[in-house]
Amino acid sequence: MSSTMGTGPVGEVEVGADAIEASRVNGTAVYNTEGDHLGHIYDVVIGKRDGRVKYAIMSFGGFLGIGEEYHPLPWEVLKYDERQGGYVVGITIDQLQSAPRYGADARPDWATSDYGRRVNDYYGVAY
């Protein structure tokens, strides 16, 4: 093990500035470039074959989990801002209102490429 990685007193891995455990990403705040708090990371979607993070699922709206909507954001559109302690995405609240999303009682069909393509097209990211 290198000197920059090790385990903490309860087995937590100390990671470098450019790596983080998925469990720590969940719950991280998401802001837009104007500084508005949009929501938080609810989950991440990982490619089965290449192991790369494809999307961050952002929870938006609602109160105490009621009425929340989930917005898949292509991982490439998120930039981590240490100053804010969260991710920043270049989208306004109005643009987010018409972005691809789903409710708590629905799940997107990740098995087809149509859904991912629609999300990526909305955010201007190559699929």
Rank of each mutant, 00 (worst) to 15 (best):
I93L: 10
S59W: 00
G124I: 04
A56P: 01
V45M: 03
P9T: 07
R118T: 10
R83A: 15
G86Q: 13
S98H: 13
R83W: 12
L73C: 04
Q97T: 15
T92C: 15
R117G: 05
E12W: 04
E82N: 15
L78D: 02
H71D: 00
E21F: 03
R52G: 04
A126D: 13
V30S: 02
G27N: 08
I93F: 08
K48F: 07
I57W: 09
G16P: 05
Y127T: 03
A104T: 11
A19H: 08
V77W: 04
G8R: 07
G6E: 09
T28A: 13
L73G: 01
Y55Q: 00
G62L: 05
D36T: 09
H40M: 05
Y123K: 07
V88M: 14
G103T: 14
R118E: 09
E69G: 08
E21R: 10
P100I: 04
E21N: 13
D50G: 01
G11Q: 06
R107Y: 13
A106C: 06
K48H: 08
G124L: 04
E68L: 06
I46R: 02
A29W: 01
W75E: 03
P74L: 10
I41Q: 01
S113L: 12
H71A: 03
I66L: 13
I91V: 15
Y115D: 08
G51F: 06
G85E: 12
G67D: 05
G6L: 05
D18W: 13
N120A: 08
N120Q: 09
A22P: 04
Y55T: 00
N26I: 07
V30G: 01
V44M: 07
G8Y: 07
G35E: 03
E14K: 06
V25Q: 02
V77L: 07
D121S: 06
V15E: 14
D43F: 03
A99M: 11
Q95T: 14
A106I: 11
K79L: 15
S3L: 12
E14M: 09
V30W: 03
R83D: 10
G47P: 03
Y127Q: 09
Y31N: 03
S3Y: 09
E34Q: 09
Q84Y: 11
Y70D: 00
V89F: 12
V25E: 01
E76C: 09
L96W: 04
V13T: 09
S23Y: 04
L78C: 11
I66E: 12
T112H: 09
R117L: 06
P108S: 11
Y115K: 08
E76A: 13
I41L: 12
V30Q: 02
N32C: 04
G67S: 11
R24S: 10
K79T: 15
V45G: 01
Y87R: 05
S98M: 10
K79F: 07
F60D: 00
G67I: 11
D121K: 13
V89S: 10
H40Y: 14
E21G: 11
L78S: 07
V30K: 01
A104N: 09
A106N: 14
G90T: 04
V77N: 07
G65Y: 12
H71R: 15
V77Y: 06
A29T: 08
V119A: 02
Y123M: 10
I46E: 03
Y102T: 03
L73P: 00
G8T: 12
G39I: 01
G51M: 08
E82H: 15
S3E: 07
E76D: 14
V44K: 04
S98P: 15
Y87M: 15
E76F: 03
V13I: 11
S98L: 13
R52Y: 06
L78G: 04
A56K: 01
